[in-house]
Design a protein around this nucleic acid. Structure first.
Lengths: 316, 316
DNA sequence: GTGAAAGCGCTAACAC
DNA sequence: GTGTTAGCGCTTTCAC
């Protein structure tokens, strides 16, 4: 492919003049500008962005670290990021970790090797201590609250949302309340869910907490474990609407009435929840993603809280 | 940040030697290799990938052109791509078009300006004629069948799948069959759906075709239009399970029995369809995405067909 | 085994 | 307004 030198030669000007017209600098005579443009069109020339980025020390592209890409919650976050990135003509790279800490670190390293201007962490498996050193090389924004001054945050108040949801269940007369989570205690949301539970209900019987729940099938499995317990829980707070729908499905197959025999509330206001009219708490992840992008762009280290919304439908 | 020159100086060797240890070349004495490695560790040095890519003329990253990123079907495709890209240590960039042809072209241009090695097109708004010139700059793979020899394809036989689904409905005794699509006739799937319909049922009453359907709400709207028609359709083939679930919901709110009064079948085997036990035709988009990635990687121009699956549940 | 040097394709400071 | 030139940070001949 032609390069800038070739264009310069053919147009009978210097490379700097070509560069000037490429970058819409003023102070280029109309004559030369036209000549250069003509050669550019003729040769169908496009500047090599690697060379440009190398010298400009900026790529206008950011990465999004996410454990899974087949998960509605993370997709909402990503969707928010993309909403804004398209508008601002940024490029976004997906960095799927499956919660492998080394993989995660290798992605953060893309800041260091100049491939990325910034990174949004939707969920992490490394400690902040391991992540912080990378702030030296680019902006890092998290979709959870972190009090570290180097980290910008777009987040919702998970703890408060969990507390309020459990309180809602308690107010409706439930005292045997179970819940599901994705990962175990290594995860921030799991920790906060447990803490919120204990705040409202006191001791947590370990059999009331089902882990590794992501899909409808996991919800069925959770229900299988939960609904044979004695005493049987009268309500369950699922960590997503897909999981909630699996629980719903299994409860119905057991002839249980929802919500009379079993109340169910999910999270994230996903299609399956709308379809089944499941109650849910919408953490507005699309907005979180949009905010996260804006923070990244602006190299901001602000902490922005996004309000959540409890949506009561027919299952609580 | 330190660069290779700095490392060379501190280690008392030439830059070529540093480059050699960086790229695990043989023929470097253990002594020098160790010295270089020590300095690298000391300075926490990482090579600048922009400079490497510039000279190597390869980025190990590919783009995925997709109209929307909040659409289950495209997410499945993307999921497939990511499954394989992670394994093979490739980077993937999301290129959302909203079906803007210019935006789409500007993304294709990333091949030309060396930012991307290849591009997967999940759905396009440009004609192939407009796209083909870009094959000169990198591999282009489509998630639909194209007979052009320059384009690799991972696809399912949409037309056959549509024909078989309409035939299934006809076999069950339906003669008043409606359907929904996303875009209008500018879209390949819409065209094929119409053609398949005509093949099975003959003339298409225009009111039996509802466009611009993507979400549950769109499904509700479609049902509102469809279910007041006279004669009322007795079956509808939705272009996705979310749309199908909106139709289901509205039909139920009208006290219609499903499938007795109205049969419904969706597409892509999405969570909401599983939750509502909706019949669906699963085009195995995850597998399509995986194949598409492999074709891109191997610079292959093969045409690979992925089998689809009709899943009959409780709504047909 | 090792190093000098010529690029890769571009930008921008500087001189005119 | 325009051209010369010194880089950006790296890989890779080629000669020793």
């Amino acid at each position: 492919m032609a390069n800038i030198k070739e264009i310069a030669k053919r147009a009978g000007v210097s490379v700097s003049t070509v560069s000037r017209v490429l970058n819409q600098h003023p102070y280029v005579s109309d004559l030369k500008r036209a000549a250069v443009q003509r050669v550019i069109d003729e040769l169908d020339y496009t500047p090599n962005r690697l060379a440009v980025d190398l010298i400009r020390k900026e790529t206008r592209s950011i990465g999004v670290i996410m454990p899974y890409n087949n998960n509605q919650a993370f997709d909402q976050l990503l969707h928010g990021v993309l909403n804004r990135s398209v508008e601002l003509d940024y490029t976004v790279v997906i960095l799927p970790t499956k919660y492998d800490p080394d993989k995660e670190l290798s992605y953060l390293n893309m800041l260091k090797n100049k491939l990325l201007d910034g990174i949004i962490i939707t969920s992490r498996s490394n400690t902040w201590d391991a992540i912080l050193p990378y702030t030296k090389y680019g902006t890092i924004v998290a979709c959870e609250f972190s009090d570290h001054p180097e980290i910008g945050c777009a987040y919702m108040d998970r703890y408060e949302s969990y507390v309020n949801t459990f309180q809602l269940l308690k107010d409706k007369g439930h005292s045997q309340v179970a819940f599901t989570t994705a990962r175990g205690e290594e995860s921030n949301s799991t920790k906060l869910t447990i803490k919120a539970y204990q705040n409202i209900f006191g001791d947590l019987p370990s059999e009331y907490h089902i882990r590794d729940c992501y899909s409808i099938d996991d919800g069925v499995r959770a229900a299988q474990q939960l609904l044979h317990l004695d005493p049987r829980p009268t309500a369950v707070y699922a960590n997503g609407d897909e999981v909630a729908s699996g629980i719903y499905q299994h409860a119905r197959s057991l002839q249980l009435r929802v919500p009379e025999d079993l109340a169910i509330i999910g999270q994230e206001n996903q299609p399956v929840g709308i379809g089944l009219s499941l109650s849910t708490v919408d953490h507005q992840l699309v907005k979180v993603g949009e905010q996260a992008f804006d923070l990244t762009m602006n190299r901001s280290k602000d902490k922005i809280e996004i309000p959540y919304q409890i949506i009561v439908r027919h299952t609580t």
